[in-house]
């Protein structure tokens, strides 16, 4: 019944640092994510979770294996097509917020829609609506350096949601925030998950945060070593 959003088979990522030394980061990942899941990928630093995130986010192509995102094989696309996929299908939320400096919150939220070729009027309306959802409407004209960390992250989440992506991909979204603000951001993710039915992939090294999610995938040394499957008894 539920649509499969991510379908990864035997994903291998190798880096070549000079001919004899090859570094294998991912050792054959198989992963399926269905629509509406709130999935946590946990692992230690160097476990390969960042590389996996880049792969899911269409920032990188696997060395081997296939990755279907909404039925499209990402591993064979060129740069321009990957850009289009990132624009339409993926919403990134970063640990360090990554808002464009000297650009208002509203303009930041408009960016993905600008790259999608949406008209100015339509994207401004949509951006205002999104800022409303993340409770940042009153700060629409503020520049990033006039916002607190939590506020920046809210704007970043609004921006990630701009083109109604298939996946919201959050990389340690609370990592740069104090616990109270982090809590509010996590609440926002839960709200989006419940109310908008957004598929969320949360990458974290924190087991506590992972416990809040429907499903936890644990990665170590480039392999999946644990997958809880979708749990009905998730803490939240």
């Amino acid at each position: 019944m539920s649509k499969t959003v991510i379908s990864m088979r035997g994903i291998i990522k190798r880096y070549y640092i000079g001919q004899p030394n090859e570094l294998q980061i991912l050792n054959g990942i198989d992963l399926d994510v269905t629509q509406g899941e709130f999935l946590a990928i946990v692992g230690q630093s160097g476990s390969g979770k960042s590389t996996l995130m880049n792969m899911i986010g269409a920032l990188d192509r696997p060395t081997e294996g296939t990755y279907y995102l909404n039925g499209v094989d990402i591993s064979t696309l060129d740069d321009a097509e990957l850009s289009r996929i990132r624009n339409k299908e993926i919403g990134f939320v970063f640990q360090t917020f990554n808002l464009i400096p000297r650009t208002s919150a509203l303009k930041n939220v408009e960016l993905p829609m600008m790259y999608a070729g949406m008209s100015r009027k339509a994207r401004t309306a949509r951006a205002e609506e999104l800022l409303e959802i993340v409770e940042m409407a009153d700060r629409a004209d503020h520049q990033p350096n006039e916002l607190s960390g939590g506020q920046k992250q809210r704007v970043a989440i609004a921006r990630a949601m701009a083109n109604r992506p298939s996946i919201l991909l959050a990389d340690e979204p609370t990592g740069a925030l104090d616990s109270k603000t982090g809590r509010l951001i996590m609440d926002l993710f839960h709200k989006l998950h419940k109310e908008e039915g957004t598929t969320i992939v949360l990458i974290t090294h924190s087991p506590e945060l992972a416990q809040e999610c429907d499903r936890i995938v644990t990665i170590s040394d480039g392999s999946i070593i644990g997958d809880t499957g979708v749990r009905e008894d998730a803490i939240h």
Partner: peptide, 16 residues
Amino acid sequence: TKEIGIRKALGAQNSA
């Protein structure tokens, strides 16, 4: 560079 990276992550084409 960082800004360029962000723009690319948000779906900016190379041409843009």
